[in-house]
Simulated scan of single mutants.
Amino acid sequence: MKVLGIMLSLAAAPVAAADIVHFTTEDYPPYNFRVGSEIRGAGYDQVLLMMEDIKVPYTIEMMPWARAIALAETEKMHCVFTTAHIPERDKKFKWVEPVAVGRNFMVAHKGSGIKVANIEEARNHIVGTQRNDYTQTLLENEGFPKIDLATDLKLTLKKLQSKRIDLMPISEQHYIELQEKGEELEAQFVFSEQKFAIACNADFPEELLARMQGALDKLIENGTQAEIFETYNLRYSNFGLVAANP
């Protein structure tokens, strides 16, 4: 693993700054997260292997999500991961995918007494998420009138635990992980399903994008992606909310 924020250059010869791919990401386990000064995760590991395969120099930096995705929108050689590929983002970026496929559960704090079976019922509650996350867009599109925005997922979770919000959408994988750690969460219903990807600037070079996609395809075809998922205990419940009520 590499130290957070350092240059991960894999080319033998010096290259111009314009040829360096700059990746940004956020703290969003199990896809990307900090362990001390390192970044790890199922998305992060795939990016490392892809870039090692194509021998292109790059950097990876972890930062708040709003800034991470804004850089990919505005800077030609920037890409952001692990990014949900939703219709509202489709034309804003060029895509390398799939890094993963996932679902979001709408969850409440266990013992809150809140029971909602669908989006219509959930609209009656205060729902929290992180600012500029794709779940904010989903909530807005579904007409949620009371959306509480925080800078990151951890702060939103703290608000749920302290009953400052009633509900929050959370990835299935992270939900299972938090339950195993003893967090008092209760899934209510499947809020969304989406493909996770690497989103690159709309002007990102097509030839380089194709090489990155080819490297990811190789990871999928030779079973490496599945092995990475296993490493990070990525698994899926059989909704029915099997994971919600073990």
Rank of each mutant, 00 (worst) to 15 (best):
K2A: 14
P14H: 06
E26R: 12
P29C: 08
P29W: 03
V35M: 06
S37P: 01
S37R: 09
E38V: 00
I39D: 10
R40D: 01
R40V: 11
L48A: 15
L49A: 13
M51S: 00
E52L: 13
K55M: 10
M63Y: 01
M63K: 05
A70K: 09
L71Y: 13
E73L: 10
E75M: 11
H78L: 04
C79P: 06
F81K: 02
H85S: 10
P87M: 03
R89F: 08
V96K: 05
E97D: 12
R103I: 08
K110N: 11
G111L: 07
G113L: 04
A117P: 03
V127L: 06
Y134L: 01
T135V: 03
Q136N: 05
T137W: 12
E140N: 11
E142I: 02
G143V: 05
A150D: 13
L153A: 15
L153Q: 11
L157F: 07
K158F: 07
Q161Y: 06
M168F: 08
H174M: 13
Y175H: 09
E180K: 15
E180Y: 10
E180S: 15
E183M: 14
A187V: 02
Q194P: 03
F196E: 12
E207N: 14
M212P: 03
Q213A: 09
A215Q: 01
L216K: 04
E227G: 10
I228M: 00
N233H: 08
N233P: 00
S237D: 08
F239E: 09
L241N: 14
V242K: 14
A243Y: 04
A244T: 06
P246I: 11
